[in-house]
Design a protein around this nucleic acid. Sequence first.
DNA 1: ATGCACTATAGACACTCTGTATACTTTATG
DNA 2: CATAAAGTATACAGAGTGTCTATAGTGCAT
Lengths: 193, 193
Amino acid sequence: MSRHRSRNRERIAATAMELIGEHGLAHVTMSSLAERAGVSRATLYHYFPDLDHVLLAWVELQVDRFVSRVAQLAGEEPDPRARLALIIAQLTDYFASRDHRLGLEQLGTLAVAPVTARAVAERMSPLMELVSDCLRTGQRMGQFRAELDPEVHASLILGLLGAMRPHLVSGRYAPGAAARAVSSLVLDGVTRR
Amino acid sequence: MSRHRSRNRERIAATAMELIGEHGLAHVTMSSLAERAGVSRATLYHYFPDLDHVLLAWVELQVDRFVSRVAQLAGEEPDPRARLALIIAQLTDYFASRDHRLGLEQLGTLAVAPVTARAVAERMSPLMELVSDCLRTGQRMGQFRAELDPEVHASLILGLLGAMRPHLVSGRYAPGAAARAVSSLVLDGVTRR
DNA sequence: ATGCACTATAGACACTCTGTATACTTTATG
DNA sequence: CATAAAGTATACAGAGTGTCTATAGTGCAT
């Protein structure tokens, strides 16, 4: 895919989010989007087959950016305990960020359309891997309880963070405090007695 | 609202779910719904202003039913620890049930439209109350850690259960095992040291 | 039973959006 | 500069929306 093309896709997707912010999802159409993006409707259809895929492109971009940043940071932390805490802190920070509030939050609970929801879940899977890796390493090193299923526990941890999200988005809970609360709950839960 | 009317609303909402099951959300329209429900389009518009509200009605019905059953059961269990475990078990059972798989699951992550998502969250709030009541009572009785925020922890617990949902729906995890895993994590987390 | 209020219905209306196709123009680049 | 690729204007048929009007059925109290 040419640089020009992918740049245009980004710009169009961003414009779609602007429109959603202004008029709500229901009132955003391929037609209004084409007009706002300063592009003909025909051109827009060259870029995306329908509105779902526009939103999808936007979400994928955001998620990928976030996930790769976290993956890089996590790669620099060898201790599984600390790595887990770091990932948790990154997520709470992100949920409290302006980026998130204006973005993913806009799309309801990340699940505009089933397509989008599935895509987000897939894109998030490296994060899931990161967490379950922590758990596996911790188990191998004897720090964590051996009877845990790392896969299931990884999704529990991410679920816990997802549950914290509304509290962070609303600003009722500071990201640091949230990170501490979740970390302590999780680390207590996985640590070997 | 007359009995006749609310009965019809239920029937129409159920028909909408059938259609979604057969053709997917995107292909269900007010027109196709009217036809399938054996009612004129004009009549349908007398019952619901748009498709979102049809789905909304269905979801509200399901959630209300479930929540009131759990509330009743929980009311009969005085000990906060056991009550918490009971609520957790009810939810894991429900997520593994055929009802759930065919219903809420159908609508993506419960969040078809932002309207619906918000409504579900509101309808779920009695459940949230139930859980935070457990926590408060447990704190008063000295069983649970005093420094927890019952509101926040309640949503963490429900978030945890939400994270367990995909594992239950897919059948990869048995409801009993899930309930035990979540219960132990939660009870360990809240119990006073 | 007659009349009244309520509910349902058929059909038509103007409107918006979709997805696709055609033919024309601009722009990049080998 | 030739030519392929990318963009544009415009038109089209089709589907769905939301509203309205006129008509028909249904239940119920007087």
